[in-house]
Design a protein around this nucleic acid. Structure first.
Lengths: 199, 199, 199, 199
DNA sequence: CATTAAGCGAGACGGTACGTCGCGTCTTTGT
DNA sequence: ACAAAGACGCGACGTACCGTCTCGCTTAATG
């Protein structure tokens, strides 16, 4: 997801060892899960992966980018399932969000990750295009399907819905309680579907 | 808000200088606003305030608590205004939230603050009782008034509404854009009022 | 010999702990003796001394200055003994030089130390005033005594003698052999005394 | 001078490119002259020479050997001139030494080189046979000629003279001043000739 | 009114992590 | 087989903060 930092002519010199790549990612996930984001240092990751720090810095520019790539990889390929109804689709979407954010590594990494991304303008931009944009287009797909079914009228406030759903999920996972209620997805989806009812 | 860390016999020896207290808080707000949460160190705060680091540690146990107290002080006394309608009340409540989180120092401090609080079980508990609980009781008041007016039936999912409103506000401010749309509060309140299914 | 790096108002704040000072110097001498100059790192010195690296950098600006002070301390107070004859005085002087340079720590440190000093203009200047100048004045004293005894005429090339004696000692110790012949001092002194004979 | 590290069956595969060899030596001399010995790294030499680091390591075992060969090449063939007198011969010899050690690259490289050689027993041995031995035999020749002329008696302390002359030259160049006095050679030679007691 | 305990500015202290650099080796693709 | 390029494990660099501690000095309330 995050691209290689430099593309030095592609095929000159020794190629990067993919086993090193994966050892680093695995070590990162393990450390974040065990010790939390703050206590995870690049040096510790390298040591656990059996590499030098340079091998890490050669691929990622810092802890935030490394952890982001290590922890959030399944998300990309989310295919936005079609359950036959808007409420069902949104419930599935929120369940996917909840599932992703509730995974041990993700839950441990999220707050610190958000803080680091928020602090750096470059990372801020990056997370918007890599996380927010796909989510928004996924939502747009869902609403397009609903419009074809005749469930909604034309003008749906996609941005507002995104704020609401993603915000609620993050808020719940990050602040309220570590254990997310299993029925939360359905209740949130229901609230939103009724809420956007265009009269 | 955060109490003095120890109460050594109450009144023996030299009392704490309140000017030091305020100099530290002012320096904290300034530094957070100028440089961000991560780049704000206790040492820098002390230097800017013209004090020693001990004067800080004597009053607060760490950066998170210091910044929390320095940045979020107006919130407490939020009186929950009565606008005459549920939608109006919720709009006012969200506007207050937005106003608080959009202030320069707060916006700069929030993500890092949340990360530090999330990482520490003790702080996690503290923020729940000092921030979440008042918000929840505020919301409960609003809904009680609405019930008296006959606007809502009995069972209102207060927790869900809190997740939705606070989550959406934080998500919007923290991730989507620094400039919050002014109509966001009304739209959010409308969505929620319709969404909690009372017709 | 090498002065403290900064004199921060002398009596403000916590004073430096002299036990730390000595622990560092001891650790330095030990490490240089055991592992050599190149293999002696600031970090290793600090670890062996049971301090942090800062405690070292606070007092010395680098390895060269630290090792110099740790290894060469007895030299300063060399009082230039009066043996009654020029040859005797010079022999004693060379013997002192030999003794100092042949000590385990000194022999291990000398070449690397000289390299580092030579590479840095500031250190170069420093070593001249702290090492060369005292040696020169010591030699000058010896020759003044000799002149009073009538052993030498007026114009003695002190610089040349210094080059010869110190150079020969260093060359012998550093390059020729680790074991310095015990009669070297006398032979060198003899050569010089005859050599400067002003006809 | 320093031999190639391995002779792999003499002539199998592609022969080494002599232009690479010279490019490396040139780059080494340039870098040492410009930046000093310590700041000269194998990587920098390779980059400057337009080669890879392996091309360097294939020919020399490390920085010390590389710089030694790059900087000291003219010395070998020193033919020990016959000026007709012992003093003249020694003056010429010292002048040659001074000339060699005062060259920009040599002066920049010497201290660091000596340190590296001193630290490694293998290199120590090597420098003795390649530098000390020839110098000693050159001196021996000079004194043999002097004996044939009747200028000296039999037992001349060649080792002592070598220590004195070479030591004084190195000491003067390396520590005292970058600018060597032009009359130094003659004064040193005079001192030694008088000092070796032959009247 | 002297005592005394705490506050205070300053800065040293033992740690830990940072991100960079050089080392000498290894592994590619092109000669 | 050599060459250029560059990845690799390693270890040192010098800096920055952390949170605690020790100084000398105020500063009030108490005995």
């Amino acid at each position: 997801m995050v691209k290689p930092m430099t593309l030095p002519d592609a095929r000159r010199g020794r190629p990067r060892d993919s086993r090193v790549h994966e050892a680093i990612l695995t070590a990162t996930v393990d450390l974040v899960t065990e010790s939390g984001y703050a206590a995870t240092s690049i040096g510790a990751v390298a040591a656990r992966a059996g590499t030098g720090k340079d091998a890490v810095y050669r691929r990622w520019s810092g802890k935030a980018e490394l952890v982001y790539e290590a922890v959030f990889t399944a998300t990309e390929s989310a295919p936005v399932p079609d359950t036959g109804s808007l409420t069902g689709d949104l419930t599935a979407l929120v369940e996917a969000l909840l599932h992703e954010f509730t995974a041990p590594a993700a839950a441990a990494a999220l707050p610190g990750l958000l803080a680091d991304f928020a602090a750096d303008p470059g990372l801020r931009t990056r997370i918007r295009s890599h996380f927010l944009a796909p989510a928004k287009s996924g939502l747009a797909d869902v609403f397009e399907r609903a419009a074809r079914r005749g469930e909604t009228s034309s003008a749906v406030p996609v941005d507002l819905v995104l704020d609401t759903l993603a915000g609620a999920v993050f808020f719940h996972v990050g602040l309220v309680g570590e254990s997310a209620a299993p029925e939360l997805a359905g209740r949130l989806a229901g609230l939103v579907v009724r809420g956007i009812e265009v009269r």
